[in-house]
Design a protein around this nucleic acid. Structure first.
Lengths: 126, 126
DNA sequence: ATAACTGTATTAATCTAATTAATACAGTAG
DNA sequence: CTACTGTATTAATTAGATTAATACAGTTAT
């Protein structure tokens, strides 16, 4: 479920946070699904439980999960989170477009990619 | 020319590398333009010359600049680099579009952002 | 040649953040 | 009571970035 990349120079607690976010945003992990326990996941990944603890604390702070002492950690209701994810992807789109513009990439190249991804439904077919 | 962000958790030598890459890729710094000297830029940014040295070494390793002992560091011929940068941004565009699609963002939202960035020249105005 | 610039290299010290380690405490469930 | 859960805390370790202090080598102008 989680794979660590030690070549990645980002801290591993951050990799764990990101990975769970992906799983929840994509719907693979549904609301109220229980996450692996702090200690068991630490065992699985061969890392210290404190590092998992930190990742889970971060996920909770961001609203992705909720934790109950003695029971476990669970996927939160993240309808609102999906909204913020949508905002984030729009920001990313803007950044990409700015970069493309700076490189002299034509507007049409970007539009074509979007159409390819979304399918040619609203536009002309090949 | 260079502004450091100490809140950014990436190392500052990396920020410097990225900033120069932007300046060169966008054409602000043309081929054979001399970069500020290691020591003078260190003075300007109030950081250690070794950090600039590291940034320049990285830029040279990546092929963005060339350095001549006793003379200085200069913008390299980076036509090939621009091409690969363009490819990279197109991949990024595809990734962004895929993510947006997965989140249920409408195609038009992406197109609007592109138009905003590129200016409304080719489309309708507000 | 010499002074004042350039880049480059090296070694040690310092600093910060991430991670580990070792516990301890508190709540839940069988 | 036992064995799980999450949570908190303090100390030690590790790794990387940065600084510091030099030294050496090449260029340029005086």
């Amino acid at each position: 479920m989680i794979i660590l990349d030690y070549r990645d120079r980002r801290p591993i607690y951050e990799q764990i946070v990101e990975r769970f976010q992906e799983l929840m945003m994509s719907g693979v992990m549904e609301q109220d699904t229980q996450l692996p326990s702090v200690r068991s996941l630490a065992m699985d990944l061969s890392i210290n439980p404190n590092t998992i603890q930190r990742a889970y604390a971060e996920l909770e702070r961001k609203g992705y999960i909720y934790s109950v002492k003695g029971k476990g950690s669970f996927v939160a209701d993240n309808g609102a989170l999906k909204d913020s994810k949508r905002e984030a992807v729009l920001k990313k789109q803007e950044k990409t477009a700015l970069e493309a513009l700076g490189l002299g990439v034509e507007r049409e190249r970007l539009r074509d990619i979007i159409d390819k991804v979304y399918g040619r439904g609203g536009k002309n077919d090949d």
